[in-house]
């Protein structure tokens, strides 16, 4: 078992004929993901990376039976691409694109909520179930099938956490990159529900960052509904207020959204806190061992 994706997931790439889309379609294929096609308006009938290209997602779905899409469409057109995938009934929509206007995501979220689709991202590394399916830009080889479910608002920091859990022999059930934007499709709480219900996942590692209140909300949810051991890390304890740290969402404003507040919320919910980013793997190990 796993969450969101497995070896039966059939994936298309929206934006497959762009250089980035092509590169990562190749990477996913090499990892073993069942890539079945791509979409680029106006390029239907061509092939890219050995896969058929369609003009619309609707066509691609009818021809390939895909149930997931990976989006590399440039920011001005990304919201439209997500809406097209949702309209076509694609179950899992993973938006990698960085730089989507926040108000576009308000419009997108409204539609996603009223659909059966799940949106992950935008501005995220993607989703992976090690050994089965990789949808996104993460380096596949650092992952190892195992027991820790990982969810994160950051990309490379997730790789760091994955690497640490792989080196400790814990491995990962699935990893979800939620994205660094203020408004994203999938939340920590969504992932907590899925990981709680997934038999392969024995423990959950939550990697947050300064800004917003998603971590606090997730901690409150975990306290009520999650029985599995959880560890958490918050990036940005050294960041000064009022300065945006790369991600549009990573900013402390009005004294809210500090690392200290989020760590306190974690502790209050019984979540093992990693104070150092080098300690994420060992923190989840501590959380697991404490239950034995």
């Amino acid at each position: 078992m796993s969450i969101l994706v497995n070896n039966e997931t059939k994936v298309i790439c929206q934006g497959i004929t762009g250089s980035v889309g092509a590169f990562h379609t190749r990477g996913c294929k090499e990892y073993g993901t069942k890539m079945v096609g791509g979409v680029t308006p106006g390029k239907g009938g061509q092939t890219a990376e050995g896969l058929p290209v369609f003009d619309t997602v609707e066509e691609a779905r009818a021809a390939t039976g895909c149930n997931a899409t990976m989006i590399f469409v440039p920011p001005p057109f990304a919201a439209d691409a997500i809406l097209e995938a949702v309209d076509a009934g694609i179950e899992l929509v993973v938006a990698i694109t960085e730089g989507v206007p926040a108000l576009d995501m308000v419009r997108v979220d409204d539609r996603v909520k009223r659909s059966r689709s799940i949106l992950v991202g935008p501005n995220c590394p993607g989703v992976i179930t090690p050994g089965q399916c990789k949808i996104g830009i993460m380096p596949g080889y650092i992952h190892q099938p195992g027991k820790v479910g990982i969810m994160s608002r950051s990309g490379t920091l997730t790789y760091e956490a994955v690497w640490q859990t792989s080196n400790l022999g814990l491995g990962q059930s699935s990893c979800v990159g939620l994205g660094g934007d203020p408004i994203v499709g999938t939340s920590f709480i969504d992932c907590l529900k899925w990981f709680q219900d997934d038999p392969q996942t024995e423990a959950i590692l939550m990697i947050g960052e300064i800004g917003g209140s998603a971590e606090e909300e997730a901690a409150a949810f975990a306290r009520e509904y999650v029985t599995k051991p959880i560890a958490g890390f918050i990036a940005g304890s050294a960041a000064p207020p009022g300065k945006r740290m790369g991600h549009a969402g990573a900013i402390i404003s009005g004294g809210k959204g500090t690392a200290a507040e989020k760590q306190a919320a974690f502790r209050a919910a019984g979540i093992e806190v990693a104070l150092s980013p080098a300690d994420m793997g060992s923190a989840i190990k501590r959380a697991i061992d404490a239950r034995r």
């Binding site: 994160s152 608002r153 950051s154 990309g155 490379t156 920091l157 997730t158 790789y159 760091e160 660094g180 990697i207 960052e209 300064i210 890390f233 990036a235 940005g236 304890s237 050294a238 960041a239 740290m245 790369g246 991600h247 990573a250 690392a259 150092s276 980013p277 080098a278």
Partner: peptide
């Protein structure tokens, strides 16, 4: 990466 960049500042501190 933004998250790793923030964490690098954190671990220095």
């Amino acid at each position: 990466g933004a998250g790793l960049a923030m964490s690098t500042m954190d671990i220095i501190k």
